[in-house]
Amino acid sequence: MEAQEFEAKITALVASALSAIDNTADLDSLENLRVQYLGREGELTIMLRGLSTLDKAIRPKAGQLGNQAKLQIEQAHDGKRSHLYDSTLNQRLATEIIDVTTPGTRCLSGHIHPLSQISNEIISIFYSMGFTVADGPEVETDYYNFDALNTPASHPARDEQDTFYTNIGPSSLLRSQTSTVQIRVMENTKPPLRIIAPGRVYRNEEVNARKYPLFHQVEGLLIDKDVNFGQLKGTLSAFIQALFKKPVKIRFRPDFFPFTEPSAELDSECPFCSGKGCKTCGGRGWLELLGCGMVDPNVLKGVGIDPEEWSGFAFGMGLERLAMLKYDINDIRNFYTNDMRFLEQF
């Protein structure tokens, strides 16, 4: 074959290939064309395979022409392919328009009860101060609920806390305070002690927006050598600042509890009126947060701890009260109705 003849043939092949590629409208036919020209048995491939039969003199020139042709067809193919891919994809994308602002598919999300949340917060603050969690029974005896807490049968406080009694026995009652746990822990563990005891307590009170026959307290107890009232003030002040996560004006106001002496009520300035006096604080400007005091020597003696050697302080707070203040909840019954519309706000 002459050089001119080869050149003509290859030019014609390229022309027909380029024209066919150009006229292709879809990726499948394009792929067919690629096979037709460039595939293992493709027209160009066969032609190039025939180069070896050519005259040695024209072989380099023909080889060069052949490679140019291959490159030309490949480029045309690739260009067309990318064009066809893009236009096909763009057509498909146009069919995939959705309203991206519609709500997503949602599983229900679970919420932790606000009383759990505040209880956990309180526990973690005291945990960081070296307190550990203790627990005790709710169906108690009058010994743990009263006698061991320096509240003998003749004590007026025993009438004031309207107690539920049970069929278990004459001394069996539903504990009216978590202070019972103090006694149980002290009976079984030698000081020094630092415990925090969250739990449910019961009082025979009519149900209303502020009262429910059961509620929850967190009790704390620290017994060590040389524990004094200043340390009670320091510990509880630190706790309140940590709980409310901001500086809160507080005061320790004297009070009486049978099992502590001296005793105090810790008040915070009413956050709703900044101490000016409002409905929430009953015009006082202060809100009671918790009761506390130095453990009465009689309580220590009763559990076999020498009050001349050890001293300590105890405190107790109502979870509902703190949660109501913290979350601005106005009716205690919300906590036990378990309305999902309530629970899902926490």
Partner: peptide
């Protein structure tokens, strides 16, 4: 304590530290 005023008592922190049990 009461007559002298609770405010007269200086807050401090308990000194001793204790081993903390893992909850």
């Amino acid at each position: 304590c009461r007559l002298n005023g609770y405010d007269a008592i200086v807050p401090s922190m308990p000194a001793a530290t204790m081993a903390v049990a893992r909850p």
